[in-house]
Design a protein around this nucleic acid. Structure first.
Length: 270
DNA sequence: ATAATAACCTGAGGGC
DNA sequence: TGCCCTCAGGTTATTA
């Protein structure tokens, strides 16, 4: 479910409730997520939150003695509840705050994770090898062009590779390529510098716009306040197979790449 | 090293 | 109603 805009929307929603407040305790109802939730997290008591940041699709909660690393997987959401409320089936983790509010993690498919590290989190094995943040200057045409040399993989799954750039998932990969006018079937190595320029600009624009709209809600993404994202109304091709292209009117096509659905306009993208 | 695939898990929706 | 199948916003680990 959540790509970079949804994770960033979540971060912005929870940060004001965490920063400057204390975590009184953490209750874990289901420890079997992507990896077992470590006992160090279950034992946290009276810990002031230093900051809430994001790297790729990971949320990082800085505490005095370490960091909580959270990933929302495919179906994870984090909500801020005004107080402790009865838990439903997939409400796996609750964080009790000194304000009386409760941070609640819900994840039906359990592809997400809650991990603990006392090291600098950027050195954690899951974060160490990640590519640049798409909304930074490091994600440039020159960088993308350099990375693409010799890569036979089709550009769409290549763009979703976290070693190339982070945060671009299945929705925004299709959307970015549409806006750049590049066919998802093109091999990465075939991109010109000019096309890499168009693609980096498109990725940045799409992600920024989506963040400004609170992310994309297809079926179940909710912000910390429990609101859906509205960017779904701005989607040009994702989940629109057979519907007319909003630019040229040709039917949007769907294909499968690397076991994921890809959507594109055969007339606008080459 | 690169590239493709299998795996983790639950729920929704469609066809019969 | 129920059963079976496919699909879903992610990422790691394994295999070629």
């Amino acid at each position: 479910m959540p790509e970079l805009p949804e994770v960033e929307t979540t971060r912005r929603g929870i940060a004001p409730h965490l920063a400057g407040h204390k975590i009184l305790s953490v209750s874990v109802r289901q420890a079997q997520l992507r990896w077992p939730v470590p006992t160090a997290i279950r034992r946290l008591k009276n810990q002031p939150v230093v900051s809430v940041s994001r790297r790729a699709k990971y949320l990082l909660i800085a505490l005095p003695k370490g960091h909580i690393i959270i990933h929302l997987g495919m179906s994870g959401t984090i909500r801020v509840l005004p107080k402790k409320l009865p838990a439903a089936k997939h409400d796996h983790v609750d964080v009790l705050l000194s304000s009386g509010k409760v941070l609640r993690y819900t994840d039906p498919r359990r592809f997400g994770c809650w991990l603990w590290t006392t090291d600098n989190p950027i050195h954690h094995r899951l974060l160490a090898g990640l590519g640049p943040e798409p909304l930074t200057a490091g994600f440039s045409a020159a960088y993308l062009c350099r990375q693409s040399r010799g890569k036979r993989t089709p550009v769409k799954p290549w763009l979703m590779d976290n070693k190339v750039v982070v945060g671009v998932g299945n929705i925004y990969a299709s959307e970015s390529l549409f806006r750049a006018g590049i066919s998802p079937k093109r091999r990465a190595r075939s991109l010109t510098l000019d096309e890499c320029q168009k693609l980096t600009v498109s990725v940045k624009k799409v992600l920024r716009q989506s963040i400004n709209h609170g992310g994309t809600t297809i079926s179940d993404f909710l912000s910390a306040e429990g609101r859906p994202g509205h960017f779904v109304q701005k989607l040009q091709v994702y989940d629109r197979a057979g519907e007319p292209c909003r630019v040229c009117g040709a039917p949007v096509k769907k294909l499968t790449q690397a076991q994921r659905s890809t959507f594109y306009c055969p007339r606008c993208q080459h």
